[in-house]
């Protein structure tokens, strides 16, 4: 049997994901924290072709002289520095300005947290930081608890995307805030990137099936027995979810619908 070229085609048209003027091919973003080694970070990035990674900014340990994580991240990868450690807008702004001074880009994940038990972001301080940093030309990707009013304020403040949490950072609980994320996907015009709490590739897939534009995962990759393999799984799952979303799948039905013809039975 001959398969035609048309029959071999499995892709559907997609709009490119553009953030800060850059086209992002891989909608799976990787956090580089908690890894067992820096070589592991490289392995996670290279095979699936990660386009965007997050890093943090800290005081240099002047006693230990460790190698810099940037030496392990390919130069074509976009660095998104998070403002982890910031307890308010002013501290986030300071971290962002320091990060940009490195010459490694101007993408900033605004993360303002002053609760150490739940690590929930302070949405109001995030809005304040976004207003200042967007005006200074940063590409701002704010991390928030999903809230429609906050998301609208962030868009008005100049955020490039909105990054609602799926569940608590590091918890691997999945998409606990699914219904709120769906509202943001429906109502907000900038890309929605689900960040925090995604624990399985199937959850990343689910977020993409809902219409999220990208997902960001750290703990689930770094804490796996085989992080590079899991990273590949996440990347594939993210692609699968995007393809399913673009294919406009039929929603769940309350009754059965036969998959085989209802005529021509042998036993009529």
């Amino acid at each position: 049997m001959q398969i035609t070229d048309t029959q071999k085609t499995t892709t559907v048209p997609d709009e490119p994901l553009i953030i800060g003027g850059r086209e992002i091919k891989n909608r799976f973003f990787l956090g580089t924290g908690k890894s067992k080694s820096k070589d592991e970070v490289t392995a996670c990035i290279v095979q699936p072709g990660i386009d965007v990674v997050t890093v943090a900014l800290r005081r240099i340990d002047l006693e230990r002289h460790e190698e810099n994580i940037l030496e392990y991240i390919p130069s074509n990868v976009i660095l998104m520095t998070n403002t982890s450690g910031a307890r308010n807008a002013a501290e986030a702004i300071r971290i962002a300005r320091l990060a940009r001074e490195s010459g490694c880009g101007n993408w900033i994940k605004i993360e303002v947290i002053n609760d150490s038990k739940y690590l929930l972001p302070d949405n109001q301080e995030t809005i304040k930081a976004t207003e200042v940093l967007a005006a200074e030309g940063f590409v701002v990707l704010p991390y928030i608890s999903p809230d429609l009013y906050v998301a609208r304020a962030l868009v008005k403040a100049g955020a490039a995307t909105v990054m609602p949490l799926g569940s608590l950072i590091g918890s691997n609980q999945g998409l606990k805030t699914k219904e709120l994320i769906k509202i943001l996907i429906d109502e907000i015009d900038v890309p929605i990137i689900v960040d925090a709490g995604i624990g399985l590739p199937s959850q990343a897939c689910e977020a993409m099936e809902m219409g999220a534009d990208a997902v960001l995962v750290n703990t689930a990759v770094a804490t796996a027995l085989h992080p590079a393999a899991v990273c590949q799984a996440f990347s594939l799952a993210t692609q699968a979810g995007r393809l399913a979303y673009l294919s406009r799948m039929r929603s769940a039905q309350s009754s059965a619908s036969a998959s085989s013809p209802l005529t021509g039975f042998l036993y009529e």
Partner: peptide, 10 residues
């Protein structure tokens, strides 16, 4: 004086 640089982070 603060001397800072990048580390792994999520």
């Amino acid at each position: 004086v603060e001397l800072v640089s990048f580390v792994g982070g999520g």
